[in-house]
Amino acid sequence: MKYPLQGNTDLAVLKPFNYSPAGSVQDLQFSRWLAEFSPRSLLWLALLACLWPGIVLAQSNYTMAQALDALWRWLPFVVSKGFVLNLVVSFLTMLIGTIAGVILGLGQISPIRAVARTSWFVTQLFRNSPWLVLLFIVMLAFPFEITIGSTVYQIPDWLKAVFGLALPIMANISEIVRGAIQSVPTGQWEAAESLAYTRQQTLWLVILPQCFKRMIPPWMNWYAILTMATPLISLLGVEEIVTLSRQAMEAEDNHPELLVPFFGFALIIFFAYCYPIARYTLRLEKRFAIIQ
C-alpha cells in the first residue's frame, strides 16, 4: 500500500483542522439530570397534578375518578399501539444513526482533506439544526412511495420520522467517535505506524479497541435523549403515544380533566423507561473511568 506524501503536515490525521465544537457531546448532562431525579420531586409533581383540575375546573361535573377510569380503559391501547411505536422508532433511529454516525465520525478523521472537511460540515450541520425542522424536511422531501420493480411500497410516516431523527443522532455519534479517537495519545498512532501498520490496521487494531468503551456511555446518553424526543413525531401525525393519547381523549369527549392523567402517564412511562438507562450510563462511565 502506498501513501502519498502530504506536504509539510506530519500526522495530519490527528489534527484535521482547528475549530471549537459547540459544546461537548461526551458529557452526560442529560443522564446525570435524569439519574438524579429524586422520587420526592416526582411525588410533588403528582400532587400538583391532582390539584390542577380541581382548581381550574371546579364547576365541571366530570370527576377525576372518571378521568382515571378512562385512562385505565385506554391504557392497553395507548401503550401497545403508541409507546411501543416510540420504542421501535427509538431502536431503529439509534441503529441507523449509529451506523451512519460511525461512518461520518471516521470520515472526520480521514487523511483525505476533502472527506474530513465534508464530514465535519455534515456533522456540524445536523448537530446544530433543530430536530423538528429536520423532521419536517425529511417528511416533506421523502417520496411517499418507492417503486421497486413492479411493486409499489408505501413508506409509512413513522419510518420517515426514523430517518428524520436519525440525522441529528448520526451527527452526535459522529462527534462521539471523533472525540474518542482523538483522545487516544498520538504516540499510539506513531508506534503502530513505525511497526508498518496500515492506517486501517492502526485504526481497527490499535486505536478503536482502546476507545470503544469510552464511547458507550455518551452513546447511551444520546439514546435516552432520543427516546425522550420521540413524541416530537406526533406533530407529524405519527401515531405514537402522544397522538394516541389525544385520540383517546377525543373519544372521551375531550374533558379537560383527561389531560393530566393521560399526559402524566406518558411522562411517567418515559421516565420509567429512561431512568434505569441513565443510572446504568453513569455506572458504566464510573467503571470505565476507574479502568483507565
Binding site: 495519545p185 504516540g187 499510539q188 508506534a191 503502530a192 513505525s194 490499535v206 479497541p209
Partner: peptide, 12 residues
Amino acid sequence: GMVFQQYNLFPH
C-alpha cells in the same frame, strides 16, 4: 524499528 521515550505499548 523505532523505540520511543514514552514506550507507547498498546495498553489493551
